[in-house]
Write a protein that binds this DNA or RNA. Structure first.
Length: 263
DNA sequence: ATGACGCTACGATAGCGA
């Protein structure tokens, strides 16, 4: 790092990277994040638009899957050194929901946590089991003492403060007591919820449904999170949500969510 | 309760996921 003061790291559920490519590239050009974790690529490894992304100055690693899921890490501050692909803890889990790399001396885990609807049901059970595996792995990361972070689409609304109208989400897996409790226990291991720690009293949303003019009414929820280990938390200087891209044409239902770290 | 999107396929509309 030469004279750079801060490192900007973002998470963005792109909801189909090839359909959203113009939106992604426009945002990369305008926001110029140093590191980006993407979720919901909805493409195979072969169909990942690596050349387009490289043309904007980013190295990338990705873990695709036909039709669903898929995660990637982008960096314009050195090539990501991959340290993990697939969440440990279940060798039979074939869903592409986790990719991890060392970038600029930071261990970055990028995740797409299962949605879990309908609740109850097997998809909800899968969500809770996935969260148990994440809990175990996150503990391992903290124990390493490394500057580490876990970011992505957690598909969990942590508290009533993180939803425009709690009663509308009462029967949704994203707001279920079980998922919220597991998220709470995870953070309590010693992670810092970056956005909430810097903005304790604000309403912060990262997702708005396409239907019923949700974005225009700001009827949103906060489900995209960046969790920092103690050595990173002390370097946190800014955090926010880029709401503008959510208003663009043919856009994702999520907005890019980011932090800035002292380097 | 409603419903928007992208993706896929014994495809040209419908089911699935979320």
């Amino acid at each position: 790092m030469t004279k750079k003061q801060t490192l900007r790291i973002a998470t963005y559920n792109i909801n189909g990277i090839n359909s959203r490519l113009p939106v992604l590239l426009r945002w990369l050009e305008e926001a110029r994040p140093h590191v980006v974790g993407l979720q919901e690529l909805k493409c195979t490894d072969e169909a990942f638009p690596a050349k387009d992304i490289e043309a904007f100055g980013y190295s990338a690693i990705w873990h695709g899957q036909k039709s669903w899921n898929g995660v990637a890490l982008l960096s314009r501050v050195g090539e990501p050194v991959e340290t993990g692909r697939g969440l440990p803890g279940d060798p039979n889990d074939e869903q592409s929901r986790y990719i991890e790399a060392a970038i600029c001396g930071i261990l970055i885990g990028n995740l797409y946590l299962p949605n879990g609807n309908p609740w109850p049901g097997p998809k909800f059970d899968y969500k809770l089991a996935w969260m148990d595996r994440l809990d175990a792995y996150a503990r391992h990361l903290l124990d390493s003492g490394l500057p580490a972070m876990l970011m992505g689409d957690f598909n969990v609304i942590p508290t009533e403060q993180d939803v425009y109208k709690p009663e509308r989400w009462a029967k949704d897996a994203l707001f279920s007591p079980q998922a919220r409790e597991k998220f709470k226990v995870l953070v309590a291991q010693g992670w810092t919820d970056a956005l909430r720690s810097l903005h304790p009293d604000e309403r912060i949303y990262t997702f708005w449904h396409y239907w019923r003019n949700s974005f225009q009414r700001d009827a949103g929820i906060r489900i995209d999170h960046l969790l920092l280990s103690p050595p990173l938390a002390e370097k946190l200087v800014k955090a926010g949500v880029d709401r503008e891209p959510r208003g663009w044409d043919k856009t994702s239902d999520h907005a890019p969510t980011w932090i800035e770290l002292k380097v």
